[in-house]
Amino acid sequence: MLAIVLACLGVGLIAGFLAGLLGVGGGLVIVPALLAVFHFANIEPGLHQHLALGTSLATIIVTGAASVRAHHAKSAVRWDIVGQITPGILLGTFAGAQIAGLISSKGLQWIFVVFAFLVAAQMLLDIKPKPTRQLPARHGLISIGALIGMLSSWVGIGGGSLSVPFMSACNVPVKTAIGTSSAIGIPIAIAGTIGYAYSGMGIANLPNCTFGYVYIPAFIAIVFASFPMAQFGAALAHRLPVAQLKKCFAALLVILASKMLMGLL
């Protein structure tokens, strides 16, 4: 158990920093890292992906709060967008978590691998949507939120990889989009955590110290390390060359997704 906690502390340091700095959600690091931790902990393989997704979303509740606080201090959060998109986020994320409970662990891993490669390609090629339109009306934002929430629940992230490009395409400045994405990630994380906790109730062979598909020891360790690092990363986001840092993160994503792909094949 001590080895698991120490490993998760390291994961939390990295994930928290990236969540605050890039607004892409530490889940892209947390999920594959937890898969490795669960392997060495001798947890049943068929439960790995569901536990990793549920635990990742639970940690984002805390790291997201730390990140939002720092971005809000820089006046980089559009709370009007957050308020209008949240109903769709909550509905889509909770529904997605329930659907995920019906998908096999390998099926969810394939979704994660494809998503990680797409995000990495977008970052490496610096693909940016042209800011040629305005934000849709409330009903449009609710629909977009439902889609972002559902996809986020299947890969265990706070939705920044989807919401930042969407807002940028709607003429929201990139730093404001990153800050707003951090705030949007909180309802995604809350609804996703509730969804995975509920769908994991009564599942056989879950390890001790779980709440549904949320593994409590990993959650506590990651949160403990990631909370201060998310604040630190959010503060640096307004001073560092984020474009170059995203390319480094994309390279890391390629490595992690490739390793997971090799395991699937």
Rank of each mutant, 00 (worst) to 15 (best):
G160A: 05
G101I: 10
G101M: 11
A146R: 01
R133A: 15
P173D: 10
A100V: 01
W154I: 08
S104R: 07
M150V: 03
V113I: 15
I178E: 05
A121D: 12
F166Y: 09
S153Q: 05
I184V: 12
L135A: 12
F166T: 00
I144Q: 08
S104L: 05
G156Y: 01
I99W: 02
A97V: 06
A169D: 10
G140D: 09
P187F: 05
S168Q: 14
S105T: 13
K130R: 15
N171T: 13
L125T: 13
V155I: 13
M167W: 01
Q122L: 10
I127K: 12
I184K: 03
S168N: 14
F94Y: 08
L108V: 07
V113K: 08
F112Q: 06
T176H: 12
I103T: 01
R138P: 02
P187R: 04
S163H: 03
I111R: 05
L151H: 04
S161E: 07
F94Q: 03
S181R: 03
P136F: 11
C170K: 10
A95M: 04
D126E: 13
A169H: 13
L147Y: 01
S182G: 12
K106D: 15
I188H: 00
V114A: 13
P136H: 09
M150N: 00
S143L: 15
A121I: 14
A120H: 04
F112A: 02
I111W: 07
G158R: 01
S168P: 00
S105E: 11
K175N: 14
G149R: 00
W110S: 10
Q134H: 14
I184P: 06
F112S: 06
S182L: 11
I99Y: 05
S105C: 10
S163P: 02
G159H: 03
L125E: 07
F117P: 01
P131R: 07
G107D: 06
V155M: 07
Q122H: 02
S105D: 13
L162M: 09
A95G: 05
G107H: 12
G101N: 02
I99A: 09
K106M: 13
P173V: 07
G140S: 12
A146S: 05
S152G: 00
R133Y: 14
V114K: 11
I178D: 03
V114R: 09
T180N: 07
M123N: 01
Q122V: 11
L108E: 06
M150L: 12
K128Y: 00
G158H: 04
P165R: 08
A100I: 02
V172K: 01
P131V: 07
A121C: 14
A183G: 04
G156I: 10
S153C: 01
P173K: 06
C170L: 11
W110D: 08
S105M: 11
G185D: 04
L102W: 12
A95Q: 05
